[in-house]
């Protein structure tokens, strides 16, 4: 097969791609911050011993964990205005879909992390007179967070890539910009290859950073 690779026709639009990458970063920062932070909170609700707190949290987690993010974004964009009458921008729809999904995911990580700490640790705290809150804060959470770090950082990387789903509602992030270029220049293979390379170049050092974090925080444990 001879195909004439023409990357030059992509690179002339470098500023379009740069704008896309910036938008991707915006989505990533907003969604991962709100998603991971909200997840810790949701995880606490999910872990609560009071049923009228833990059951709604469980329902939330299951709804968002078991439906595709892509469909959620489409739904927020097209259906939410119909249901509520509120205008939803492409950015808002993407943020809602990815963030709510990430909250559901990290809530489960959080709950699993706390449950993975041995009962004996709770007992040790209790035996020296600690309250539930003191044991949680001083004994359980520091150990649980350490165990939660790998799944949470890999979710962060996942969110970065997930941002491309926003292209479905034409939010001008990297993939959407490449789609535009491809539709002008009829060069989808080159355009999407460049998108893949851009993600790789950005994420590779980011992933190395998470490895470093994990090594650093995994130090004192047995």
């Amino acid at each position: 097969m001879d195909y004439n690779w023409d990357f030059a026709s992509v690179f002339v639009y470098w500023n379009v791609l740069a704008m896309g990458l910036w938008a991707t970063f915006k989505l990533f920062i907003i969604c991962s911050t709100l998603g991971l932070g909200g997840g810790l909170f949701m995880g606490m609700l999910r872990y609560s011993k009071t049923r009228w707190i833990s059951y709604p949290a469980m329902l939330y987690v299951e709804v968002f964990r078991n439906t595709p993010v892509l469909v959620q974004i489409i739904w927020f964009f097209f259906a939410l205005p119909v249901v509520t009458g509120i205008e939803v921008s492409p950015m808002m729809a993407a943020v809602l879909g990815i963030t709510l999904n990430t909250i559901a995911f990290s809530a489960e990580v959080f709950r699993g992390g706390i449950q993975s700490i041995e009962r004996e640790q709770w007992e040790a705290g209790k035996a020296i007179g600690m309250s539930y809150a003191q044991s949680m804060r001083r004994v359980i959470l520091p150990q649980a967070l350490k165990r939660m770090l790998p799944p949470l950082t890999s979710r962060g990387i996942e969110v970065f890539k997930m941002s491309t789903l926003a292209s479905v509602v034409a939010y001008p992030e990297t993939l959407q910009q490449a789609k535009l270029i491809a539709s002008y220049e009829y060069n989808p293979i080159e355009a999407y290859t460049v998108v893949a390379l851009m993600f790789f170049i950005v994420l590779l050092p980011l992933v190395q950073l998470t490895y470093m974090l994990e090594r650093r925080f995994g130090k004192s444990d047995a």
Partner: peptide
């Protein structure tokens, strides 16, 4: 419980 010390079979030290 602050007035009573307890020692366990499996030590239960805080590993962190």
């Amino acid at each position: 419980r602050t007035r009573i010390g307890m020692v366990f079979q499996h030590f239960n030290l805080f590993p962190h």
